[in-house]
Design a protein around this nucleic acid. Sequence first.
DNA 1: ATAAAGGTTGCTTCTGCTAG
DNA 2: CTAGCAGAAGCAACCTTTAT
Length: 274
Amino acid sequence: MCLHLTVAQMPGLWHIWLKCARLKQGNKYPEVGTVGGAMGRKPSITRGLQSKNVVVANTLVRSAQSLSLAEKRIVFAAAAKMGNNFGEVILHASEYAETFDMPVKQAYEQLKNAVEGMRTRYFTLAVPDREGVMIWKINWLQKIGYDDGKARVGLRFCEDVLPYLCDLTKEFTKYKLKQACALRSVHSWRLLELFEQQSSGWLAIKIEDFHHAMESNDSCRNNFAQLKRKIIEPAIKELREKDNWLIDFSFTKAGRKVDLLKFTFKKNPQGKLF
DNA sequence: ATAAAGGTTGCTTCTGCTAG
DNA sequence: CTAGCAGAAGCAACCTTTAT
């Protein structure tokens, strides 16, 4: 349910926090962060969110996020909509339905349930100091709201989460939300994020880091076959089929145990493009 | 309600290591 | 060099959970 990060794993963290703090001091946080919607005016909700960019900190990409697929959709749809305007984000069921291709009624139920569930979600940050290591538990959301009449939900991220979701440094992974829309597995989405983080077209990752990033269960951690069958192969299959990636996967061993996972990947220029 | 994905378990096969 | 051991990986069947 939670993750542990150390400052050593997060170069630039303090830099990000300082930047965020400076912005906050300068009152750059708008009162309401809904994009394209002045107060009282009917917001533009007909085009969905698919053209929006998702921008997330690399540290977050490499970390466990403790989110279900629906919750992840909401976090990244909201982050995409929020951009650099920290504040409340309003998500309409209609735009969510269009973005993730589902009926509006179902979209609103999913939005409401997931937002409600996320009230108690948190991740854990391990921060070393002079006396030892402080474990900080950080909630994703500061507050939530919903409007049954207009089929919309509102949310505001906690301040400590904002540095990971906003384009404050170069240490960020950026991808079109539309790329992730068709994915039905949270593992596919996370693998996509790991790929988008690399500009080289290949990724070599320690098996332990991969487990951490994918939040593998004990069965997958103890059994590489399970990891391959339940996480790696389905994720590759889905990215190949739905997002036109050309992916090669291999691994190296230390003794008998798998030690390093290697992926080479590129977008198929022949395939359909979003 | 249903299909798909995820999880568990038990058995078999493979392979690195070591003693003879 | 070879045989045996032990641990890791592969596989299949079945059950549970989740998304649609």
